[in-house]
Each structure stands twice: as C-alpha cells, then as structure tokens.
Design a protein around this nucleic acid. Structure first.
Lengths: 225, 225
DNA sequence: ACGACTTTGTGAGGTGTATCACAGCGCAGC
DNA sequence: GCTGCGCTGTGATACACCTCACAAAGTCGT
C-alpha cells in the first residue's frame, strides 16, 4: 500500500475518538429497543459495553437478524449520516452502555475535522463488504454451510480460545436466534447442532457452546464458498 | 431536515463532478471483465454509458449477481477507498464507456475538497441500505416474491413507462440472469414468468418484457415484506 | 443460408427445509 | 415447593425449489 488514504488517520485518532470525547452516556436494559424501523430521529451510538441485535421483521412476524454488535462498534450511523429513517430495529441483547451523538454534533465534528471523514468512509466500506458477503453467502450456500459459518464467526467475535485450540462461546445465543441469524427455523438449527454434537464437532457446556473441531466446521462452511 | 450534512454538497457539486473532470476515458466491449475478485488494483470508474454486472461466483460455479449498474453509477469504489482486494467481479453487460480514477487521484481530490467526502459518505450509506434490504428480502421472502420485486426494480431502473401506465423493460435480461439476480434457477424463473404471462400480469415483446399489471406484482412482492 | 451456440419451454423425480404438534427441561418468581 | 414460560428435542407431513433431461426456438458469425 504505497500511498494511503488512512495511514495517518486510523479510527483511533479519528472519528471514534471524537465520539468518545463528545458522546452523552446512556444505558439500556436487556430487551429494550434502542432504535426502531421507520424512526425519524438521527442519533447514533458508540457501544461501550454489552451487545445489541440489529434485525428486521416481516409483516408476517418472521425476523431476520442482520448482526450483533458489541463494545467498540457503532450503531445507527446510517440515519445519523444521511438523515433517512431507520431501516432496521436495534434491540439491546444484554444490558448496554453507550455514548450517543446527534446528527448536529456529527456535522460539526466532521466540519472541524475533515480528516475524520476518511475513517468514516473506511468503516462504511468494511460494513458494505460484510453485508455483500452475507448476501452472496445466503444465496449460494445451503443452511448447513451457513450455520457452520455463523458458529465460526460468532466464536471468533464473542468467544474465548481454550488452551487446546478449541473455542468457547459462552455468550447466550438461543437456537431461535441462531436460526434468525442464518435464515433457518429453530428446529433445523436444533437438528444440525445435535448432529454435530454426536459427531464430536461441537459440545454443549451449560448455557454456552464449545467448538471442538474448527477444521470440520471450516470444511462444511467452505464446501459452498 | 433542519440541519444538513449535504444540502450545499449534492453529488453534482461534489465527488461526482471531480470524477467527471479528472477521470481518464475508457471503453469495454460487452462481456469483458472490468474488475476481478481478488485483484489488488484500486481504481474506480464512473460509468458514462452502458451497463455492468456485479457478481460473485462460488467454487462450484454458481453465480450470484449483486446488481447491475449504469450511466451515472460508480463501480469499484470500495477497493479505491479502502485499498483492499476486489470483493466481486465486474463485467460489462453491454458496451461500456467510463471514466477511471486511481486511488492516488482520489486521495488527492479528497484532500483538496474535504466537503466531497460527505457526498461519498452519503453514497456509501445508500448502497449499504440497499444491500441490507436485499439480504433481508432474500431471507424473508420466497422466490416468487423476490422475482416480482426484481421485475419491479428493473422496470423502474432500466425500463420506460408506456402511456397506459404499463412499463416496458427493453434491456436484455436472460432468464438465467434473472435467476442469478434473485437466487433461483433459470427453470424456476421460466415457470413463474410463464404463469404471470398467462395471468396477463406481464407480456413478452420480442427481446423485452412489458409489465402490464404493476399492482398485481406489487401484491406478490409485498406479501412477505 | 448454414451450423453452432445461446436462450427458452416443460416434464419427472428428488430433497432440503418449513410447518405442525407435542413432550421434556430449566429457570424465575411467588 | 409449585407454576409459568421460554428453550430444547423429535417425529410426521408438506411443499417450494432444484436437478436432470431433452426439445424447440431464436441469434450470431461467416
């Protein structure tokens, strides 16, 4: 990378730091709705603690979870940047602490620190890549592969590594949640996980899950890459 | 919208104008690959004429088309902004004329015109909303609804309105393409369109398609909104 | 106008997931 | 303790969509 848009403007010295400096501290109880689809407000929030779920619900009540975000992630930036209505629901999946900024503050910050805009662009690019990848994965891969991928991704983002190379996922994801994250029913998720459990690929440990055989899951996930 | 990030910075006075002024004119024949997945180059292109297809192909050869873009749209911005490898293929669907900018030029332009970054942010936000919507649509809606939605969208973007409220789509989209755009097989697309034709909802006209009953398609599309 | 290639049309049969229906389980609260 | 209530486990059945197979029609190059 010979020339760089970003070398001297990492997120740490840019937009995120501004949020940390100027945001108003807020707190949400688990289950509380932070932003609702269609809302016209345009604040955004930097999560400092906890986990939120971003989802959409169809008219017939079925839910698609786009992702879960945690400490260090931003939510609600789209509405904050472009002023359009909220396009998804954001619900606290645990108790959540965050720092809130209004659209007005953001406009001011970007005006005073034009370089911070580059950090924002980079963040949006990453999100765009992730979302596109999710889309094609969903179109091209079957349920089994998508679920395998999801477990690997969740273990990576929320889990802790165990000494023997296995990976512990202690955060609580119900089988319904897993289903809504990959577009399967709870029953299908159950049957698949059960099957992997029998095969020794994963293990249940109280409320959590342990991935015993990363390679096996990678195989299933990659089969339709 | 009391305060605005963008009022005085519409795309016409911002980034897009810079592209038009500084881009190098290029041309591609129909079918030619413009960018390939994994490529490390980081130019972008403003399309001035023609239509390009953005797609990904799985290891087993199945293809998912993300979208088609045309005159006035930008392609390849992700790699140009963040310097990462290309995440999708871009192929000319017709003869294509465009204006190319390198990452270096973009860095320079954004440095000299910090306000243009806001236009870029807005564009990325729109893309992100669209992509998220595509994802949830694919998860929540069945094939029929997705195809109905696609036809409405294509007719909107590429079609011309007919005097009697119907809508003409003369651009050439094969049934395979339609399938790859919504994640159905060519055969399924064929059967569905045939059914709609029988019901008088659409009509074939030589190489094109005419949507006779917008409302009916909207009904099918919305059933799983 | 010719063959080669792409696109469209259609049937038979298979399959991955959804749906429905219920039973067991675990935990929170009274 | 018992009583809900949400989560998990599992079978039977249904159906949307895929796969394969092949024929017909259109399109393009020379």
């Amino acid at each position: 990378m010979p020339l760089s848009l970003t070398t001297d403007l990492t997120e740490d010295t840019g937009f995120r730091t501004l949020l940390e400096r100027h945001g108003r501290a807020v707190e949400f109880a688990s289950g509380q709705t932070i932003y609702g689809t269609g809302d016209e407000d345009s604040t955004m929030m930097l999560i400092t603690k906890g986990r939120v779920e971003i989802s959409r619900t169809s008219s017939d009540g079925r839910r698609s979870i786009l992702t879960h975000l945690g400490a260090g992630d931003m939510v609600g930036e789209l509405a904050a940047f472009d002023g359009m209505p909220r396009s998804a629901d954001v619900v606290a999946a645990t108790r959540v602490h965050g720092l809130v900024l209004t659209r007005a503050q953001i406009a001011g910050l970007l005006k005073d620190n034009p370089e911070a805009a580059l950090g924002v662009i980079e963040t949006l690019c990453r999100r765009l890549r992730e979302t596109s990848a999710m889309y094609t994965a969903h179109v091209l891969a079957d349920g089994q592969a998508r679920l395998a991928r999801l477990l690997l991704h969740l273990a990576e983002k929320w889990g802790e590594p165990l000494p023997d190379g296995r990976r512990q996922l202690s955060e609580r994801f119900s089988q319904s949640d897993l289903g809504d994250l990959v577009g399967l029913t709870r029953e299908s998720v159950n049957r698949q996980i059960r099957e992997w459990e029998q095969a020794g690929i994963v293990m249940r440990q109280g409320r959590g899950l342990v991935i015993c055989d990363l390679a096996a899951l990678l195989g299933v996930a990659g089969s339709a890459e």
